[in-house]
Design a binder for these strands. Sequence first.
DNA 1: GTCTATATATTGATAGAC
DNA 2: GTCTATCAATATATAGAC
Lengths: 197, 197
Amino acid sequence: MPATQTRQRLVETARDLFYRQGYARTGVAQILKQAGVNSGSLYHYFGGKQDLLVAVLEHYRENLWPEVLDPVFDRTDEPIERIFGVLDGYRNMLLLTGCGGGCPIGNLALELADPDPRVRALLVENFENWRKAIGACIDQAAHRFPAEIDTDALSTFVLTAMEGGVMQARTHRSLAPFEASVAMLRDYFDRLLVRDR
Amino acid sequence: MPATQTRQRLVETARDLFYRQGYARTGVAQILKQAGVNSGSLYHYFGGKQDLLVAVLEHYRENLWPEVLDPVFDRTDEPIERIFGVLDGYRNMLLLTGCGGGCPIGNLALELADPDPRVRALLVENFENWRKAIGACIDQAAHRFPAEIDTDALSTFVLTAMEGGVMQARTHRSLAPFEASVAMLRDYFDRLLVRDR
DNA sequence: GTCTATATATTGATAGAC
DNA sequence: GTCTATCAATATATAGAC
């Protein structure tokens, strides 16, 4: 097979296993087996398991727009609907995984207590890119929010609501806590946007 | 030393290491070394590493009131201030750990992708006890909220805000995302409680 | 209940031929 | 770039004397 495909398959397999089992519980041997790749190839492309994690986090960063945001943003131009459309995407992910999946970045962020600087920087970058995309939607609708609202803090709060809701849904293996969280966030937005401004 | 102290020290040491390093990254040998206990004693009291985790989660359950809630509830009777007092306790925990700690239950909930049923039940129980304590505060102030507000969902949302804020604070190693999240939650409460009812 | 010594499996990573 | 074989370290758990 072409050289780049081996590397690519390693990254995709690692992403899949890290997501389903976590980083520590996934062994290099399991990645090799599932990817159909030999040990020598992995250590030809990567310095080790942690470099594979770095590649996975870079992959998530590269795929935020094409996989998470674009499909939602293509369906509507309305900035507030875009925000809740993104949240609905996470609801779908929970549905598809029987509430067992959650947010891959959030999972890694809490599993890795003291991550290598490169890893932590990529976790931060993934969070920040997500938050900035939401922040841009809020800014587009800035004239509809009360002037005293800190729109940067509000974008943080949207990420907070997503991650906190997903965490509870995953623990309960139920959509209910996620849906309750999004409903409360929606109520908050409704009250902020109580009339057109 | 007395028999019960050996068991107790194992649980406390495991709690400390699971909190600082995560469950998977903590080896039984490390727990034994730090606790000053021999292998034979651990397997006398516990079936294995996972049973130690169960004991740690039971410990957290037993200590929710004495360690997390009572110190706050003793300072004020006002139910809304109690809620934000609890959140301020997590801010303190973040401060004390250089934002590296976070919520021990949330950390384990996301690290353990597919936990043993006993473990998952205890994670749920820990979340539920916390949420119910917040819910009781909300119920005490129920007359001050708009009638259409789902107070059960609101207590879920408080836990969501805490966990999501803590996750970001831990990732950024900064209090700012946690404080922003709590500030937005406070703003939401202020708008809900816009006048005395 | 506690002790030391050890079993067995698995971990991440490497060597060196092709 | 890929292959097989294997290393050294560490993992959890156990055996059996005291």
